[in-house]
Amino acid sequence: MRFAVIVFPGSNCDVDMYHAAKDELGEEAEYVWHDETSLDGFDAVLLPGGFSFGDYLRTGAIARFSPIMNEIVKAAEAGKPVLGVCNGFQVLLEAGLLPGAMRRNESLKFICRPVNLTVKNNETIFTSLYKQDEVIQIPIAHGEGNYYCDDETLAVLKDNKQIVFTYEGTNPNGSIENIAGIINKQGNVLGMMPHPERAVDPLLGGADGLKLFKSIVKQWRESHAVKA
């Protein structure tokens, strides 16, 4: 399986994403610069965390108009897995690939620490290896992860089981309904504030994020298996 790791000016978790795909999964991975205009040959797209374009104007607002975004929209429409973490999530929101928007953390502080998450939906291509309602520990690192959407959108998210991860215990940023990660209606675009790529090896302090990446590969292998 071949992963594209998108790199914007100001991305800073791209190496971790690459490491997760290449070294931990043992799959192919390549960095793709934001002004590239093709994602041909890639099976999945990873949008890393960081501060694309210095977070100028709004987080993700400028990155969303990078040339590569047209290709990411096409990949999403084609049903390929697209994972946006932290700033990657913010970019997906700005691009309209996921509903809602981000506000500053309620505390106005940048928060960097491990948090507990509940897997609210394990019937997605990103979470199939977790148990339903499993509590996992994944680090967060953001100043703007206070997810917001209107009541109507929230009802739709709930009805379609689009809320994939919620914060367990204390909500670190004030997000509505303790939302930490949501998926699109089609089930192939996931955005989340916590960093699974920073939790892929016990050496890093935990490996609870690895199953997310393994789930993507598992689903891909199953759908691409040659039937004898």
Binding site: L57, F65, E94, G100, A101, R103, Y148, C149, D150
Partner: peptide
């Protein structure tokens, strides 16, 4: 399109 985010 860019200067504001109509969601918020």
């Amino acid at each position: 399109r860019l200067l504001s985010n109509p969601v918020i």
